[in-house]
Amino acid sequence: MLPLAEIARVDATVDESWRSPVADAVAAAWGVAPGAARWKRSSATHVFVVPPDADPRGVLYLRFVPASLRTVRDLEVPARLLASWASTGSTVAPLPSVAGRLVETVATGLGDMHATAVLSAPGEELELDDLTSPLAQSWGAALARLHRDAPPLTSADQPPPLDLAALERDPELQCAARVVLAATDRADHPRGTLHGDFELDNMRWAEGRPTAFDSDEARTGPFIEDIAAAVRDLVGGSPGRVEHPALLAAFLTGYRGVRPLGYDEVSALQLHGAAVAVRLLVAIAHLEDEPVPDEPSWSVDLRASLVVHRQGLRARVLAATVAR
């Protein structure tokens, strides 16, 4: 998650038509005309969309982040994975820049930005309420194909180790996080290249099949943790209870139709869900609970939403240690 101050910094450059000179500088590296890119959202990266009438290639998504916060490698490894997975139809392919690179470092009015671009994934976004058992089964099969087909990551490709020092302001949580991660390590479940965030809001659906467009959280880890990250809305936040058991069962059935999934792995789903929560908590550990002076209303609202989200994640991690 980008710091709220960084989101505000780019937001201040966005005009009433959702255009920004920062996005224009990034877009130029892909041969996109000034004024075509429009702000879409800012979360892990800043995302601007180029509408279909502005570029002959169709709808494009430009994603960029300050060079001070991320390295080229941080964007390059996920882009290479997207290209690999796209050959099987599971993801959209990254779009090379005019210079032929998957990642560009662009000088902007707000400093250097590392940037990538992808074409729009075909289809529409589905909400949880739209999900049926056949669609959940297709979703599980799609994640299994990613696990089956992903090339292994080298040691140089791995993201930095998770730094639990980020949680030091909450010693109880920090201790619980260590317990959860140690338990997942001891479980010694099958491992490989993970997508990292194969949730419904990171894919589009066409003819009953999903296509993913984001692999920023890719790393090596236990496959069951990737499943836990994908289905956390199906499992829900109540320890020992699954909120959508039929949909979860369909997802797992679809997964097992492509690659093996042991019952010992499934029995550890909520434990690995707590490990996912630890990672999310580290990602937003920089967030302050209280608004800062002169903070815009959208930032106040986003901060409040993230604080509530953090409380739910914290409860999930603590509950996992009680259950052990």
Rank of each mutant, 00 (worst) to 15 (best):
Y263N: 15
A319I: 01
I7N: 02
F213W: 13
M1K: 08
S84D: 15
Q137T: 10
V282L: 06
R73Q: 14
H286P: 00
L302M: 13
T132P: 00
E104D: 13
A83S: 13
A142Q: 07
G236M: 07
V77K: 10
T108E: 06
S305N: 13
A277Q: 02
A115V: 00
A177W: 01
A44P: 00
D197R: 06
L181N: 03
V278D: 11
A228I: 02
A229E: 11
A107M: 10
R9L: 10
R186T: 06
L173D: 01
H272Y: 15
R232E: 13
P159D: 05
W85Q: 10
G100Q: 05
G123E: 07
Y61H: 14
G196P: 00
P94I: 06
E168A: 15
T154I: 02
L261I: 04
G89Y: 12
V322P: 00
R219M: 12
L146P: 00
L128C: 10
S120P: 02
R178C: 07
G240Y: 04
A230Y: 07
R148H: 08
P34F: 06
V258T: 14
L280S: 15
E168N: 11
A141V: 05
D163S: 06
D55N: 14
A323M: 10
T193N: 05
E225K: 12
S90D: 14
T108V: 04
D188C: 14
T108L: 07
L62F: 12
F48I: 00
E265Y: 05
E225R: 15
D112T: 01
V231D: 08
G31L: 08
V49N: 09
R324V: 10
P210D: 01
T91K: 06
P134T: 03
Y61I: 09
V118L: 04
A274N: 08
L271D: 05
A27N: 04
P296R: 07
A274S: 12
H195W: 04
L162C: 12
T211V: 15
T108S: 01
E6I: 11
A150F: 03
V292F: 07
G221Q: 08
F64N: 04
V77W: 08
P51S: 09
A218I: 09
V26M: 03
A212C: 09
W205I: 01
W139M: 09
R70A: 14
A150D: 02
W205P: 04
R232F: 09
G237S: 14
V231Q: 13
A274I: 08
V32W: 02
T116D: 06
D157C: 07
R279V: 00
A8V: 04
T253V: 04
L135N: 02
T154L: 12
T211F: 07
G240D: 05
W298Y: 14
A44C: 11
R57Q: 08
V258Q: 12
E295R: 06
P296L: 01
L313P: 00
V317I: 10
Y255F: 10
V47I: 12
S138G: 12
G273R: 15
H244R: 15
H309M: 11
L234N: 10
S138C: 04
D163R: 03
P52R: 14
G31P: 02
A323K: 13
A250K: 11
V77S: 05
V103K: 02
